[in-house]
């Protein structure tokens, strides 16, 4: 495939399809110079901050109906469908008006876009909570905090994990969009600069880097964590 790319690039003007060598140069600039690394670090920060914020928010919203049964339709029938169907770009555009261009806008809009993914996964976990197990916990101890720590939290672990995993994949893509429209740092911002200068090699390099990053983090972090989680559960059962 690399060879096909190389020859196709020879035949087409570089602004339409840059060659692999030029893209490699740009990629090296991104990961090996302070200026390039600064933008990579900024994007990683945006993703991490937004994931953390949306996880905490989503956790509260998903658990609310468990302690306040009257809120079931409020969460499942109103709030979640609304944030889930409201377009992400809309949030970014509004954030630009409300918060100006910068880190706040990027983190805010990515947080809200990730929120439904977190809620939907965690709600699934709350719904799957074993009623009988909860009842038993209640008969053993009156402490709600203990039941939460010993029963609810461990039962939710797999769902938290899948919430994180799904959001992680989404977060990179929407962070790029948010940075492109409303950021002053990050890979999305670089992409916007490249777009204006018709620097297609830069666009390729950014996209390639994101594919590599997502793949590497999925493999190193999530796959490893998943193996440990499963081992832990098997160990507990035996």
């Amino acid at each position: 495939m690399l060879i096909v790319w190389f020859f196709a690039a020879q035949a087409l003007p570089p602004y339409q399809l840059p060659g692999p060598i030029k893209v490699g140069d740009k990629l090296a600039w991104l990961v090996a110079t302070p200026a390039g690394l600064w933008h990579v670090a900024a994007s990683i920060f945006h993703v991490a901050a937004a994931m953390l914020a949306s996880f905490v928010l989503g956790f509260f919203v998903a658990l609310l109906p468990l302690y306040l049964p009257v809120a079931v339709i409020m969460v499942d029938g109103r709030f979640t469908p609304f944030v889930n169907s409201f377009p992400g770009i809309g949030w970014t555009m509004l954030a630009i008006v409300w918060l100006g261009i910068g880190t706040n806008t990027v983190v805010f809009s990515v947080t809200i876009i990730l929120l439904p993914f977190m809620i939907i996964n965690l709600r699934e976990g709350v719904r799957a909570l074993d009623r009988e197990l909860m009842e038993m916990a209640g008969s053993f101890s009156r402490s709600r905090a203990r039941a939460f720590r010993l029963i609810i939290l461990p039962s939710l672990f797999p769902f938290m994990f899948s919430a994180m995993r799904v959001s992680f994949g989404v977060s990179w893509k929407v962070t790029l969009t948010a940075e492109l429209l409303g950021g002053t740092t990050g890979l999305g911002y670089l992409m916007n600069v490249a777009r204006q200068e018709l620097d297609t090699a830069q666009i390729f390099a950014v996209m390639l880097l994101i594919v590599l990053l997502v793949y590497a983090i999925n493999r190193l972090l999530f796959d490893t964590a998943q193996r440990h989680l499963q081992l832990g559960r098997v160990g507990a059962a035996s």
Binding site: Y15, Q16, G169, W172, K173, L176, T177, L180, G188, M191, A194, R195, L198, T200, I203, V206, M207, I210, V211, V214, Y215
Partner: peptide, 13 residues
């Protein structure tokens, strides 16, 4: 893994 904005810009070009 490829982001939609990336495709959007490339498609425009």
């Amino acid at each position: 893994a490829l982001p939609s904005v990336g495709w959007a810009i490339l498609a425009l070009i």
